[in-house]
Every structure is written in C-alpha cells, then in structure tokens.
Computed example of a mutant assay.
Amino acid sequence: MTFIRAYLRASTKEQDAGRARGDLEAFCRERGLTIAATYEENESGASLHRPELFRLLRDSKPGDILLTEQVDRLSRLSDKDWEQLKREIKDREVKVVALDLPTSHMMLKTGDDFTGRMFDAINGMLLDMLAAIARKDYDDRRRRQAQGIAKAKAEGRMKGRREDVERNEAILKMLQRGQSWSSILKASGCSRSTLSKIAKRLPSQSAQD
C-alpha cells in the first residue's frame, strides 16, 4: 500500500510550519486520497539538518509519496547537499510530489512501467531546476541583506545596541568614588570591556584591582 506523507517546513520558530496543511489536505481530498502521516519542523531549507524530513524518509516504504507545498520547502540546499538528499530519496524509492510542480502530480497515478520511468525522469529534471532556483533565491536574499547592512553602516543609519545611559552614569559615579572594578562589575552586571570604555571617560582612569 502506498502512503502519502506530508512534509511541512518553516525557517524559523516565529513562522508557522503548519500553514500549508490545509492546502495539502485539500489537494489530496480532490483526488480521493488521504494523508497517512504529517511531518512538521522549523528548520532552514538551506541546511541538511532536518530531523523530521529524515524521519519521514526512514518511515517510508518503496513507492510512498513525499508531499510538500513547494519544492523550496524541501530544498534551498547547495548542489552538494541537494545531491545527497536526492540520493537518500532515490535509495528509499520515494516519489516527490509538490503542489507547485504539476508534472509531479502524475506520480500519484499508476501506469505502465515505461510511462512511470518517463514521468520520473521529467519530474527529476524539473525538481533539479526548481531546487537550483530556490537556492539562487536564498543566496540572492542573503547578498542583498548583507549589502543593505553594509550601506546602512556606511551611512551611519545602523548603530550598535543603544547605550544604557542611567546604568553608565551610575558606573561613572562609582568609579569617581574610587570603588573597585570587581565590585562595580558585580553591582552593574556589565562586562569588563564595557567598564573599561566607561572608565576612559574620566579625566584619569581609575585603577583596576
């Protein structure tokens, strides 16, 4: 018996990995099919560290369907990591069906061996193409983010953490009173490097102990 195993992924804990559950269920319902198991996780698509995805593959039997919303839910991997994941899928004889890849929907149908191999070859080629596009989109977004941060820093629009003025004024007063560094660190909870910076604001730096 062929099982349909739904895979749901989001990149961060703040995102809802189960958001597409309804779309996957509706897709199967329209075809008279039922999702046998659902695997949901919050992990980056650019990483092979995907415990639930690999649990899905371990649970699968030859011919089972890995159903996902989009190819990029399955992979934003580098070429090397994508090849490794593909080998795992192929070795376990799992068929990948993605809602955004119509040719993959043919994998749900049974037919003669030649037709099955033909659709498998076409689907594999398109999976490779969409996985490459997903990775390029990932790399492009990271590059744009890095460029934006660099530009903001150059223009002085991005600064470090806002200074805790009240705390630092209290530290200055403690330094002026000649209080030891160890007692100031303990009382303020600041780091030694922060204390050193504040101490430099004094006309003459307080002695350390």
Results as ranks from 00 to 15, higher is better:
residue 123 N to L: 02
residue 168 N to M: 09
residue 164 D to G: 11
residue 76 R to Y: 01
residue 180 S to H: 01
residue 140 D to Q: 12
residue 202 L to I: 07
residue 39 Y to T: 07
residue 132 A to Y: 06
residue 48 L to A: 08
residue 119 F to H: 10
residue 29 R to V: 03
residue 159 K to F: 03
residue 147 Q to H: 09
residue 26 A to R: 15
residue 6 A to T: 04
residue 36 A to L: 04
residue 179 Q to L: 08
residue 194 T to E: 04
residue 37 A to L: 10
residue 62 P to V: 06
residue 105 H to P: 14
residue 104 S to M: 06
residue 140 D to V: 05
residue 79 D to R: 02
residue 47 S to P: 09
residue 124 G to H: 08
residue 106 M to P: 00
residue 101 L to Q: 10
residue 139 D to V: 13
residue 51 P to V: 00
residue 192 R to N: 11
residue 81 D to I: 00
residue 175 L to Q: 06
residue 111 G to M: 01
residue 21 R to S: 08
residue 52 E to A: 13
residue 18 G to D: 15
residue 133 I to D: 02
residue 180 S to R: 07
residue 183 S to D: 14
residue 24 L to H: 02
residue 171 I to N: 08
residue 104 S to F: 01
residue 124 G to D: 06
residue 88 E to F: 01
residue 139 D to F: 08
residue 33 L to P: 15
residue 63 G to E: 14
residue 200 K to V: 06
residue 64 D to R: 01
residue 81 D to L: 01
residue 183 S to Q: 12
residue 184 I to Y: 09
residue 203 P to G: 13
residue 111 G to L: 00
residue 102 P to W: 02
residue 110 T to N: 09
residue 90 K to V: 12
residue 155 E to T: 00
residue 67 L to G: 12
residue 89 I to S: 04
residue 50 R to P: 02
residue 98 A to W: 02
residue 83 E to Y: 03
residue 99 L to P: 08
residue 72 D to N: 15
residue 73 R to G: 03
residue 109 K to F: 02
residue 177 R to A: 15
residue 43 E to L: 03
residue 159 K to H: 11
residue 200 K to E: 10
residue 131 A to V: 11
residue 170 A to M: 06
residue 20 A to D: 06
residue 73 R to Y: 02
residue 190 C to E: 09
residue 203 P to N: 12
residue 193 S to H: 06
residue 119 F to N: 13
residue 112 D to R: 15
residue 44 S to F: 04
residue 140 D to E: 12
residue 42 N to G: 01
residue 134 A to N: 07
residue 142 R to C: 01
residue 174 M to V: 00
residue 80 K to D: 13
residue 110 T to V: 08
residue 34 T to L: 12
residue 190 C to F: 04
residue 159 K to D: 10
residue 48 L to C: 12
residue 15 Q to M: 06
residue 79 D to S: 07
residue 125 M to R: 00
residue 4 I to F: 08
residue 21 R to P: 11
residue 85 L to M: 08
residue 100 D to E: 07
residue 86 K to Y: 01
residue 172 L to Y: 03
residue 176 Q to S: 14
residue 38 T to H: 02
residue 133 I to T: 09
residue 134 A to V: 02
residue 157 R to S: 13
residue 101 L to E: 09
residue 77 L to P: 13
residue 34 T to Q: 07
residue 9 R to C: 14
residue 172 L to I: 08
residue 121 A to T: 12
residue 144 R to G: 05
residue 153 K to I: 14
residue 68 T to M: 10
residue 75 S to T: 14
residue 194 T to I: 01
residue 178 G to E: 10
residue 97 V to L: 04
residue 43 E to C: 05
residue 95 K to D: 11
residue 9 R to W: 10
residue 176 Q to L: 13
residue 123 N to C: 15
residue 119 F to C: 05
residue 136 K to N: 13
residue 113 D to T: 15
residue 151 K to H: 11
residue 55 R to D: 06
residue 48 L to W: 01
residue 112 D to F: 05
residue 192 R to A: 05
residue 133 I to F: 04
residue 49 H to A: 09
residue 184 I to N: 10
residue 88 E to M: 00
